[in-house]
Design a protein around this nucleic acid. Structure first.
Length: 298
DNA sequence: CAGCGTACCTGTAAGC
DNA sequence: TGCTTACAGGTACGCT
């Protein structure tokens, strides 16, 4: 469930299903799933056992669940999750059979459980200290230490457009590479980058230093709009790897304008959508609506 | 040090 | 049919 809308669908599901329940067992079935927890899987389990998860938070593609403080103060640590390319967080019960790629399970006192299922094991869980937020904005809730460098995402009310524009124009790269840089703006992945650039009519290799303020605002508006629309449809699911906490898939794949539509007609002008290799993957775009700039940065 | 290429995994689908 | 290759929603690390 990789990009922001899909992760937000999961966050909402976690908030509805697993908060304020005592964790009675922690099972790490694949050590790679907790490789970011440097103290090891024994410590990972020990830090969670007997606690409750107080909230479900997200920035970009990262999720975290603050652990209720035993003395009643504000949480000091949190369970941090990243879904990588194929991770799922599923709410189940004792009677649900183990998934093939089940990596970690937290059991709760009421017979429900939270399962981290991940085919490719690029995702993972860890327990991390919470630290005051260093990014811009008036509200400064705590964030897990390893994601302190992750920028705010376009759906964050404290996202600072001016700061983003300044930093973007200092870059010497193409617009798509910049949009995928989670330290500059978070939550955007390969699907929504291509969809937003199509909406903003910009080629993915357009040099960032050539973008003026109105154009940058247009790109950000396109990103936010496509993400809100995707969220309303439960996210994008090409296959059963991408589902919410109860195993339901999203429907935004039907609304995609360019991603995965090579050789099919552009929804605006009818020209065949092009696909080009990009960062070991693909970029999809309309060669007529999004012409190659005179100078290009890939 | 910013920017870019590659490695990390497993599975599916297409090509021969 | 079976083997090989290309590709997949992401990030981290090493090299230049």
């Amino acid at each position: 469930m990789p990009e922001l809308p899909e992760v937000e669908v999961v966050r909402v599901g976690l908030a509805e299903h697993i908060l304020d329940r005592t964790i009675t067992a922690v099972e790490v079935l694949h050590p790679r799933a907790v490789r970011r927890h440097h103290a090891g899987d024994g410590d990972f389990s020990a830090q969670l056992l007997g606690t409750t998860l107080a909230d479900a938070c997200r920035r970009g593609k990262y999720l975290w669940l603050p652990i209720a403080d035993s003395l009643g103060g504000p949480p000091m640590v949190s369970l941090l999750a990243h879904l990588g390319m194929s991770g799922q967080l599923l709410v189940g019960t004792r009677r649900v059979a183990d998934q093939v790629h089940l990596r970690v399970r937290l059991r709760f006192a009421d017979d429900t459980d939270l399962r981290f299922v991940d085919q490719r094991t690029f995702g993972g869980l860890s327990v991390e200290p919470l630290t005051p937020d260093s990014t811009s904005g008036h509200l400064s809730p705590a964030v897990p230490e390893p994601i302190a460098h992750i920028a705010r995402d376009p759906l964050d009310p404290s996202f600072d457009v001016d700061e983003f524009a300044t930093r973007l124009r200092r870059r010497r790269t193409g617009i798509k590479r910049a949009l995928l840089d989670q330290g500059l703006v978070s939550g955007i992945g390969n699907i929504y980058a291509d969809e937003a650039l199509w909406r903003a009519r910009l080629h993915y290799a357009r040099p960032t230093e050539t973008l003026n303020r109105p154009t940058i605002a247009r790109v950000l508006d396109a990103v936010a709009a496509v993400m809100r629309e995707a969220l309303a449809q439960g996210g994008t699911s090409f296959d059963r790897l991408y589902v919410n906490v109860t195993g339901q898939n999203g429907y935004f794949d039907r609304s995609l304008d360019v991603y995965g539509r090579e050789d099919r007609p552009c929804h605006r002008c009818g020209a065949p959508i092009a696909r080009q290799p990009f960062m070991n993957r693909s970029s999809y775009f309309c060669p007529r609506c999004q012409p190659l700039p005179r100078r290009a940065r890939y």
